[in-house]
Amino acid sequence: MTAATLPHVLSPSAVTAVAGRLVDNVSEVVRGQPAAVQYLAAAFLSGGHVLIEDTPGNGKTTLAHAFARSVAADFRRVQGAPDLLPSDVTGSSVWNQVTQSFTFVPGPVFSHVLLVDELNRTPPRTQAAFLEAMEEGTVTVDGVSHPLPSPFTVIATQNPLEQHGAYPLPEGQLDRFALRVTLAPLGEEDELRVLRDQVHHATVTDLPPVIDVATWHASCAAVRQVYVAPAVSAYALAVVRATRNHPQIAHGASSRAAISFVRTAQAWAVLNGREYVVPEDLQAIAIAALAHRVAGAGGAATAALADILARTPVPLGS
């Protein structure tokens, strides 16, 4: 998409307001998860995909659903299952009796927001179908590339506990997620509220959309313009490179990870009402943005990253 076809350009403060509306709206339904909501908002604004990882029943799907509903955009959902086929996701060509030719019937991936529930329960073949869609924004079926709507965000959930009948996501797949979000345990009060809210019906279905696709798109464009000082870029890279040398990390984050890291930090800066990225933005998202991309199981990667963040000097101009 070229700049000329952009609906309009938003100022950073306007994007901050948009993001605030989004976050407020989602928080109406998703109680006690401010960090997760912020991360998702950042991913939304930076055009990245999110992987929500938590045990079942903690509101992963509600969170994803709430975001999808908050945007007045085309929203599809795919339920991960061992028998899910790639064509169930991408769509397939069917024989048209009238025209005597194959016609492409788009699958659920042709949407603005795609919720893939329990991604790790789909077989690797089907997981691979998402790769092109997530990275290139296109789907190729029978040798024909079909562009996906823009913006396109995948919100996937996975359950780390239940390993039976699950296919762990390959590194290549994980690397395409800008953020991996883990939900925090709910406090007593929050849980009580959730209980009260949800006892009659799922409140997420009542959630009104607060931004439209054009605004979303313009916000993404504006977020890309957020200033990243050379020192801050260097700092981001230093963190990413440190993952490659850390003893507790088998192999470090990729260059794609670095790019995605900084882009998400741009969105994070806007969420915090700034027009420029500060090292603290990178620090705030570092775990979410990098931990799933480095090989080091679970807590080890997180601890290693925290260590890296503490050691990497923040640029302070001297």
Partner: peptide
């Protein structure tokens, strides 16, 4: 920036925050 550096040093001398602060990763 220089004033910030002095303030940070004073802050450490004052003992505000953790004992080993500031760490390299600690910024503004």
């Amino acid at each position: 920036l220089a004033a910030f550096g002095r303030f940070r040093a004073a802050l450490s001398a004052d003992g505000l925050g953790s004992a080993d602060s500031p760490r390299p990763g600690d910024g503004v």
